[in-house]
Design a protein around this nucleic acid. Structure first.
Length: 474
RNA sequence: GGCGGCGUGGCCAAGCGGCUAAGGCGAAGGUCUGCAAAACCUUUAUUCGCCGGUUCGAAUCCGGCCGCCGCCUCCA
C-alpha cells in the first residue's frame, strides 16, 4: 500500500499526492502564546511532528510552517491583567512553547510566523477581499467576510449555511452591525478594551481577526497552493472553513490540497477542562514526575483520528513499555561476533515491511509500534537461543534509526545521563564490594549492600555479564 | 434541529469482508539466580455493546435498538 492519508475535506482515505514531486509543504495551526500549552495541544503538535517525520523518512523534502498567534482576545486580556505589554506576554510564552516542544522531541518547523509581524500581508488580503466584493466594512468600523458571497462555504466541514443555528450560543445582538450573523470578522475595529493594541492601516484602526493570519501566512510561506494543512478537529469549523474562504476569494488558488485533523484527548475519561480540575499543561505533568518520553509515548500511541484517553495508568504503562524498548537496545552489545542468523534477517525484513505499511496507512502509529515490539520479541527469542550475533546488527541499527526517525520515541531523550558523577563512582564501588562478598559467599554482606542501594532508589540488575544498575524513576 | 464519531480481553489499543482477532501494560507459569530483583520466554478474547439482515464467509457491510462523545462563531 502506498502512502495514504485521510483527507477531511473529501472525507476518505486517499493515496497521497503532492503538488511537486518529492516535495511537501505543510502548514500547522499552532498555539496561541498567552499561556503554557496544555497536553491536548501537544497531542496535536506530536501528530504534526510524526506526519512530518514520516514524510521525511519516506524521502520527501518537507517544508513545515507553524503559526504562533500572538494577538487575540486571550493575549490582550492577559497582558492587561498583568499590566504588561502584549509583547512581554507573548515573548514569555513563545519561549516556553519552544522549551516544551524541544522537551518532547518535537522537531522544529522551518518557520514560525506570527500575526503581529504580518499585518501588511493581512491588510493586503482584506483589501483584496473588499475589492472582490467578498468583504465589507460595517458601521462599527470592523471588516467582515460575507459568507454568502462564497458559494462553496461549508465544503470542508460539510455544513450548510442554512443549517447553522443562529443565536443559540451567541446572542445575535453582539453582531448587530454585521449584514449576516454568520459573517466573521476579518479586521476588528479598535475599542477601549483593546487598550494600546492596534494598528493604523488602510482598512482602519484595529487588529486582525483570528482566521486571517493563517490564510495570509500559509500562502506567504508556502504559496497559494500547498500540500497539507493540519489542526485539531475543533478548528474545522469555523476556523479552517474561514481560512479557505478568505484564501480562495482573496488570493486565488486551491489553498491546502489536503486537510488532516487530529482528534482531542480526554483525561481519565472526562473532557479536559479547568472547571473539572483536570486541565494539565505539559509542565504540570512533568512536575508530577513523569518523563517527557513517557508523555510523548502516550500522546502518540493512539491513532491521531481517535479520541485519546490520557490517564496516569497509561503513563505508567508507557514507562514499562519504554523500559522494554531500552533493554532491547542495550542488549545489542552483548551479542557475540558471528554471521547473521537467517531468522534474524527475516525478522528484521518483516518488521521493516510491516512498519512501513502501518505508517503508510494514514500514520497508524499503534500498528507500527506493535511491529516494533514483535521485532523485539523475535530478536530476544533468537538471542535466548544463543543465535543472536553482531552479524545482523548493522541492518538492525539501520532499521532502528528509521523507526526512531519516524516516531521519535525509541531512543532516550530529555533525560540527564546519570553516569559519571561522584555518586555513580560511589555506587560502582559498592557494587564491587558486593561482588567480592558474593564471590566469598558472604550473602549477608552482599544483601546488605543491595538493600542499602535499594533504599536510596538504586536498582541492581545481575546478569551473566555482570551487574548493571539504574536509578529508580519516581 | 443539522453534521459527525465511538463502543474489541482486567486496563490501554490496532484490525474495518476471508490466514489461528496485532501490540503494550497488568496477571499467571517458567528460565536465570546463593535467594531475590531485573531481564527474557510462554500463557492470557471460540470472541469484537445488543438484535436482526446481506454474504459461501462479518468485529469489519446494511437496518434497528442501547450506551458514550464531539462540532454547529474565535477551543489543538
Amino acid at each position: 500500500m502506498s502512502l495514504h492519508f485521510f483527507d477531511s475535506r473529501r472525507r476518505k482515505k486517499l493515496p497521497f499526492t503532492t503538488i511537486q514531486p518529492g516535495r511537501v509543504s505543510i502548514y500547522n495551526c499552532g498555539p496561541t502564546i498567552y499561556d503554557f500549552a496544555h497536553i491536548g495541544n501537544f497531542r496535536a503538535f506530536i501528530f504534526t511532528d510524526i506526519l512530518r517525520r514520516w514524510l521525511e523518512v519516506s524521502g520527501y523534502n518537507v517544508t513545515q510552517v507553524m503559526n504562533l498567534t500572538d494577538v487575540d482576545d486571550k493575549t490582550i486580556k492577559r497582558s492587561q491583567r498583568e499590566e504588561v505589554s502584549l509583547t512581554e506576554v507573548t515573548q514569555r510564552f513563545r519561549t516556553a512553547f519552544f522549551e516544551d516542544i524541544d522537551c518532547l522531541n518535537i522537531k522544529r518547523a522551518h518557520e514560525y510566523p506570527e500575526a503581529t509581524t504580518h499585518i501588511d500581508e493581512m491588510v493586503k488580503l482584506v483589501e483584496s477581499l473588499i475589492k472582490e466584493g467578498n468583504a465589507y466594512k460595517a458601521e462599527d468600523g470592523s471588516v467582515y467576510f460575507s459568507v454568502s458571497s462564497y458559494a462553496n462555504y461549508g465544503e470542508l466541514s460539510g455544513k450548510h449555511l442554512e443549517d447553522l443555528r443562529i443565536g443559540d450560543r451567541v446572542s445575535s445582538d453582539e453582531y448587530e452591525s454585521k449584514d449576516d450573523v454568520r459573517d466573521f470578522a476579518l479586521w476588528k475595529a479598535w475599542d477601549e478594551a483593546d487598550g494600546d493594541v492596534f494598528w493604523e492601516t488602510s482598512i482602519g484602526k484595529g487588529r486582525p481577526g483570528w482566521h486571517l493570519e493563517c490564510s495570509a501566512m500559509s500562502t506567504k510561506y508556502l504559496g497559494k497552493d500547498f500540500d497539507i494543512h493540519t489542526g485539531g478537529v475543533d478548528l474545522i469549523f469555523p476556523h479552517h472553513e474561514n481560512e479557505i474562504a478568505q484564501a480562495k476569494c482573496g488570493i486565488g488558488g486551491d489553498f491546502a490540497h489536503w486537510w488532516l485533523h487530529n482528534e482531542h484527548l480526554s483525561i481519565e475519561g472526562r473532557k479536559m477542562s479547568k472547571s473539572l480540575n483536570n486541565y494539565y499543561t505539559l509542565r504540570d505533568i512533568l512536575e508530577m514526575g513523569y518523563k517527557p518520553r513517557e508523555i510523548r509515548y502516550v500522546l502518540s500511541s493512539t491513532h491521531y483520528r481517535s479520541k485519546l484517553n490520557f490517564t496516569f495508568d497509561g503513563l505508567a504503562a508507557a514507562r514499562s513499555a519504554i523500559e522494554r524498548i531500552d533493554e532491547f537496545h542495550e542488549s545489542w552489545d552483548q551479542y557475540p561476533d558471528g554471521d547473521a542468523a537467517p531468522e534474524a534477517t527475516e525478522a528484521i525484513d518483516r518488521a521493516r515491511t510491516a512498519f512501513n505499511a502501518a505508517m503508510d496507512d494514514d500514520l497508524n502509529v499503534s500498528g507500527a509500534l506493535s511491529h516494533v515490539f514483535t521485532l523485539i520479541r523475535e530478536i530476544n527469542a533468537i538471542h535466548h537461543q544463543g543465535k543472536a550475533t553482531k552479524g545482523f546488527l548493522p541492518e538492525l541499527k539501520e532499521l532502528w534509526e528509521r523507526f526512531d526517525h519516524a516516531l521519535g520515541i525509541l531512543k532516550p531523550f530529555g533525560e540527564a545521563s546519570s553516569a559519571d558523577d561522584e555518586d555513580s563512582q560511589r555506587i560502582e564501588t559498592l557494587i564491587e564490594d558486593r561482588l567480592e562478598a558474593r564471590n566469598s559467599k558472604d550473602w549477608a554482606r552482599a544483601d546488605e549492600i543491595r538493600d542499602l542501594l535499594a533504599d536510596e532508589g538504586v536498582e541492581l540488575k545481575d546478569g551473566p555479564e555482570g551487574t548493571r544498575w539504574k536509578r529508580r524513576q519516581d
